[in-house]
């Protein structure tokens, strides 16, 4: 039966099943995904915070659940999580506002 809501928390656990309809691309994606989050020039902890901020910016409820839990497991504190969310919000707000320059340019070009 189809759910009456667009998002169901239980669907997060089924994420891996996307490979069932396209094994090759699904496997490639998950392999890439796992490699991205390995320790590298950035620590796994830093990557987790970036993922949390991006999760908010793209407004993905599955990602927010996943990376809040991931952060807790890594000992990331709630103050750090909230600051990360504000970084995302600032960029998103800034991205809206910086378009104001385009608006100003257009306004000035069209005005006498």
């Amino acid at each position: 039966m189809m759910s009456k809501t667009y998002y169901d928390p239980a669907d997060l656990k089924k994420f891996g099943s996307i490979s069932e309809w396209n094994e090759k691309l699904g496997s490639k994606f998950f392999e890439y995904y796992n490699s991205v989050f390995e320790e590298g020039a950035l620590t796994a902890r830093e990557k987790s915070l970036i993922a949390l901020a991006v999760s908010h910016v793209v407004q993905c409820p599955y990602c927010i659940d996943a990376y809040t839990k991931d952060g807790l497991e890594r000992g990331i504190e709630k103050e750090e999580m909230m600051e990360a969310v504000h970084v995302g919000a600032a960029i998103k707000g800034g991205a809206t506002l910086v378009h104001g320059v385009q608006m100003m340019n257009k306004y000035n070009k069209l005005s006498m």
């Binding site: 902890r45 807790l72 497991e73 890594r74 000992g75």
Partner: peptide, 17 residues
């Protein structure tokens, strides 16, 4: 041990923190 319903992460990384 985790203060909640989640699993512990990597022991070495937590020891470092």
């Amino acid at each position: 041990n985790p203060a909640g319903a989640f699993l512990p992460a990597n022991q070495q990384a937590l020891e470092r923190d």
